[in-house]
Write a protein that binds this DNA or RNA. Structure first.
Lengths: 244, 244
DNA sequence: GAGTGGTCTAGACCACTTT
DNA sequence: AAGTGGTCTAGACCACTCC
């Protein structure tokens, strides 16, 4: 191990594989390694970074667990692409009663720029003074069931309003147009009576029980880049969650 | 490796570490390794099972990831105990607005034995003809906010009604009295108007929006051993979820 | 100091996929 | 056949905890 510890700055005995992880995340975040691209083999990666194949392997396994790369035996390791499907079903948890997916369709959309609230400044990366607010209505099987308001900092998403209409899945746009990969989110779920505004947008009866989901979404580097409040009319549909 | 593959039945080239995992799970499930007990060291475990320390280590890491054991550097690996606290906060996801926990207190409880429904027979392990139904009301900060109905197969939980009043956290009882460790659950969440029965139990206004959470809980061996329907009055409280 | 888990290495062979 | 990830080994040293 003396050879390895000499070739690199080992800061305070931080594990070597974390250095490998950080290096790879930097390359992916910078766009040097774009989604879909194949990474070097474990052996090559280890050789390049001056670590053993086993250490490179450990880093790659960790990245796969976090959904950042995908590995296929006999083929290689690839930077995970947020395809519309995977992004949708990973972060869009509404399911049919039998557990199957229904693809939600976009019905209405509006994008505006406005000053950020105090709360948004405290949560979002970069403490932005201004944010883009994206309001959307989605329907499932022809019924308007979903209302979303996504808030993102303007500095990270230049020119976003001009891109309207935005794609069905925002996270795909974030990745392709802005090299921001959403990999983790925290959600707080409540049952509420639909607010007049939301009910009006969804054409729902006033006071109908709805799921209100407040999400904070983070990118590769752990920066909170989106705040989102969704309302779901869950008739026969369910919000599916797994506890492990 | 020839030595290793000779000492054990390696069925169809299943990974060795899975054999280690299965062995340990069997010992834990059978009660031979009770919660809180310290496992052998990686080296000893490997020696006993005829695998290398590294292979034993891989199995232990997997078991820790699944919440089945707990490892502490310099101390050892221990069978995870479902303490009231860990069970509560792992599977009880209601949080204060600031994200902190409040301990829910038990207000009312009733346990009865009844015939199982068709759906329960299809879901629960053993296709039981009869189930125990545990109905409970919980309060947080003095307000009755939670109503739960848990359904378990009678064959797995003999004498359960005689144990009433049951402890605050059922999963602790399952583990200590019946050697059944709940390690995984799937939940389907909906927003509903409180049913008359639930509203009456909670002393809530009829039609109040509530979270309805349908849970299927599985044990170490992946058997579905409990079906639970909870209703939450989420005023300022949230149901917290993490997506990764 | 003794014992534990945590990290790392170097090399081997296997299983899978593609050419 | 060549190249990839998947498994496994054996041995080393480090960091942590407890006595």
């Amino acid at each position: 191990m003396s050879a390895a510890s000499g070739t690199r700055e080992r800061i305070l005995s931080a594990p070597l594989y974390k250095y490998v992880i950080e290096t790879l995340i930097d390359r992916i975040a910078s766009g040097e390694l774009a989604p879909g691209i194949m990474l070097p083999s474990e052996a090559d990666l280890g050789a390049e970074l001056g670590v053993s194949q086993g250490t490179a392997r450990k880093a790659l396994i960790d990245l796969e667990r976090r959904g950042i790369v995908r590995r296929r035996q006999g083929v290689g390791t690839f930077v995970a692409a947020r395809t519309p499907e995977s992004a949708l079903f990973h972060f869009f948890r509404l399911r049919n009663p039998d557990g199957s997916h229904s693809v939600p369709e976009l019905e209405e959309e509006s994008v505006r720029r406005r000053k950020s609230s105090k709360c948004e400044r405290e949560t979002l990366f970069g403490r932005p003074d201004h944010v883009f607010e994206i309001e959307r209505v989605r329907s499932i099987d022809g019924r308007r069931l979903v209302h979303e308001i996504s808030v993102v900092p303007t500095p990270l998403f230049p020119g976003l309003p001009e891109r309207s209409p935005l794609p069905n899945t925002l996270y795909v746009l974030y990745q392709h147009a802005y090299s921001i990969a959403i990999v983790q989110a925290n959600e707080n779920i409540r049952a509420v009576s639909g607010t007049p505004r939301v009910c009006e947008r969804l054409g729902a009866a006033a006071g109908l029980p709805m799921l209100r989901v407040d999400r904070m979404a983070r990118d590769l580097s752990g920066r909170t880049v989106e705040q989102r409040t969704s309302h779901f009319v869950t008739g026969n549909h369910c919000y599916a969650v797994e506890l492990t």
